[in-house]
Amino acid sequence: MTTEHEDVRELLGAWAVEAVLPGDEHRITAHLPGCAACSAEARRLRDTVRHLEGPPAPPPSDVPHVLSRAFRTRAPALRTAPHAAPYAAAVAGLQALLGELGERGDWETPVAHDWDVHDTVAHLIAADEPLALHLGLHARVPASSVPEGAPWRAAWAARTSDVIAHERLRTPAQTVATWRNQAAGLLAAPAAHDRELAARAAVLMGVRLPVGDHFLVRAFEAWVHADDIGRALDRRVPPPRVPHLWQLVRLAVRILDIALGPQAPTVALTIEGEGGGTEWILGDTTDAVRAELVLDPVDFCLLIGGRRPPTDIPHGLSGDTSAAHHLLTRAASLSWL
């Protein structure tokens, strides 16, 4: 059982960005005068946020009315560095969607991977945890008994399963608060707005990337799961803002190029849609291009995220069909979401 001090400490990140419920706000303000440690941490977080806050982005005009209202009334988005801005936006968007669910039975709606909405939010706690721990934040769910030296996929599967089991014993509101507070902590961390810190590489989830790219991975996953929840509830979730979407596309192409390796059939991949278009040559760049493939940026991201099967993805194709199919199949295989 956690103490009042521990509960308040969990809430400080969200409190700093004005994202706590009224009851939690009262608990925090009542606790701070008598706790020097929490008061100091609260001042530090508020000082950080004061330099980072910016106005919320306006909702797209085609977002349904109810969800648009939620986007307009959410807590202010943080003015983070470009590498963390997509994550901040994805967190705000998912928080807006979850805020519309209330206490109704929507939380038990099946989503994906045998998870309901509640489980999916719990999964995001586990998914964000490696980056949070790397940045010096404390774990918000009790430690799991993952064997030392276990392959990362096995360790990841065990951890996400344990976190979901833990959160099933709590209310959806408690689970959302834990996810939201951890996300607020990530966005208040120095690496979220310091490009030098963001350039330092770290191995997380089996991938060595700059910390800034790990923030993009977090944005990718938050958006994909928000889209999962929206589809399950028959509510349209808008794609990332165009600049953010292209950041995710460029990251996904870099990861796909590494996964294909230098021996793969050479394919000219063009991602083309709102915001422009870019072409990459992937595979064996010493060989002639065997196929030219054109994809929409949202479809490409959903393919990489495991939400579009290679056989159903809309695309333009000329040249060797087998070379293009190899690229599409490899892209779909990269998802662990």
Rank of each mutant, 00 (worst) to 15 (best):
T2Q: 07
R104A: 13
A84Y: 10
P130H: 03
V298E: 06
L131D: 12
L135Y: 06
L260I: 02
D296I: 03
A36S: 03
S322G: 06
C35P: 03
V224W: 04
L327K: 04
P130R: 04
G316L: 07
W179M: 15
L197T: 08
A132V: 03
T29Y: 08
W156V: 01
L282W: 02
Q95Y: 04
L124E: 12
L45A: 07
P309F: 01
W179P: 13
R159T: 11
A198D: 11
A84V: 08
T278K: 01
H225Y: 13
G277L: 02
P309C: 01
M1Y: 02
L98M: 08
P82H: 07
T109W: 02
C301M: 07
R208K: 03
V289Y: 07
L251I: 04
R195H: 12
A40G: 04
H83C: 07
V267K: 09
R43C: 01
A323H: 10
R27W: 07
P297F: 00
A324G: 12
V294H: 14
L98G: 11
A177R: 11
G99T: 13
L334F: 00
Q263F: 04
A331T: 01
V211T: 15
N181A: 15
R50V: 00
E221T: 13
L327S: 06
L78H: 02
E18T: 14
D119S: 14
T270Y: 08
P130C: 05
L328A: 08
R218H: 14
A126F: 08
H123M: 13
L260V: 04
A36L: 00
P210A: 06
C38R: 00
P262G: 05
A127T: 14
H166L: 01
A37V: 10
M205Y: 09
A122V: 11
G261M: 00
G99A: 13
R307A: 02
D296Y: 00
R231W: 01
A84R: 10
S161I: 01
D194S: 14
R79P: 03
R46A: 08
A89Q: 11
A158S: 11
G261K: 00
A14G: 15
W115L: 14
I229D: 04
R235D: 01
D116T: 15
V66E: 15
T120I: 11
S318V: 10
A30M: 14
T29P: 05
V91I: 14
W115H: 15
V66C: 07
R74F: 01
F71I: 12
P239G: 08
F300T: 06
V207N: 01
E103I: 03
T285Q: 11
A226W: 12
L101M: 09
F300D: 06
L302A: 06
A96L: 06
R307H: 03
G212W: 09
L94H: 09
E272G: 07
P314D: 02
Q263D: 14
G316H: 05
D234I: 00
A14I: 10
D7E: 14
R195F: 02
L11Y: 07
T329M: 01
V66M: 09
G230A: 04
A323C: 06
L282R: 04
L302R: 13
M205T: 11
T321F: 05
R231K: 02
Q95P: 00
A143D: 11
V294R: 15
D106M: 06
P314Y: 01
W179V: 14
H244D: 15
V8C: 09
P110E: 09
W15E: 15
H325W: 08
E100V: 12
D227A: 07
E103D: 15
G316C: 09
A332W: 03
T171L: 10
V237K: 00
E129W: 04
